[in-house]
Design a protein around this nucleic acid. Structure first.
Lengths: 142, 142
DNA sequence: GTGTTTTCTTGACTCGTTCAAGAAAGCGCG
DNA sequence: CGCGCTTTCTTGAACGAGTCAAGAAAACAC
């Protein structure tokens, strides 16, 4: 078990606590889940965790790169466990469904802006907006 | 004056009202401004507009494509007047500054996801995260 | 002008998230 | 294995962007 959650936490210099392990597991089990869903999943294991502990854990894990926070406009914060692989997201305008897309070219091509205005760019985030299969068939009756 | 604000509103089938004209002017005058800044700018002309009128105008204008709403994670909603030209944004992680970048290739190349998962994609939004010139020199003291 | 529809004003309210203080748990050390 | 320091969790209140709702006012067509 090379990527045991506990090990991940220790690697990051964090203390291993039940809430954190549960949050980490919840994010892995429910990709793109919002805070409330994660809170629910965590409470399946630990019925008495406070929402604050979940918020704090998510912030800490996000800050150490163990989970990634995504927040499409108009949505609440969502979290996912795929980090560091430069993938992007498809977001359904209708139902909010989020799907992962690997970067088309594979080696952070997106990091090349036509004019960087002197910015030091460290990440390019791509969000594809549209309708998921379910919503597109429903919305275009034809 | 081909793009007179009033004309734009009428074209979109909207009534021409003072708050809307002021909001439209404010968005043009202050690209990437948040709601509060727009509210302030609008009140420079119309001291008594309600924030609700501004919110409503922004929603209406956004819905009709006269202004575009952008909302980087962790920021409040911001608005800009460049619409339909497929440009993207540079956002400074430190100070929140936003700069425009034209699409690198020019013809919506970003709209090509490697695997669309059956989604009907209508827009690709790209956000480059990093540090603006000012913050990058200040943050890397060496 | 008159009437109908849309839009603005006012004010309360929701909800995700954050703040703060103290209690509890984790971890290193002897 | 217990001790003490530090980090983290609990509890509960607060914050703020944005929304909702009802009535008044303004815009447009005739």
């Amino acid at each position: 078990m090379t990527t045991a959650p506990e090990h991940q936490l220790r690697e990051a210099g964090l203390r291993v606590t039940r809430p954190r392990l549960a949050v980490l597991a919840a994010v892995h089990a429910h990709p793109h889940a919002d805070t409330e869903a994660i809170l629910g999943a965590v409470r399946a294991d630990l019925p008495d965790v406070s929402h604050q502990a979940v918020y704090d854990s998510l912030h800490t894990l996000t800050g150490h790169g163990l989970v990634r926070r995504i927040k499409p406009a108009g949505s609440v914060a969502r979290y996912e466990s795929r980090t560091g692989d430069n993938h992007h997201h498809l977001v359904c305008r209708s139902c909010g469904l989020i799907a992962d897309v690997d970067c088309a070219v594979g080696h952070t091509p997106c990091l090349t802006a036509s004019d960087d205005h002197g910015f030091v760019i460290d990440e390019a985030e791509v969000v594809y907006w549209g309708l998921c299969p379910t919503c597109s068939t429903r919305t275009q009756p034809e």
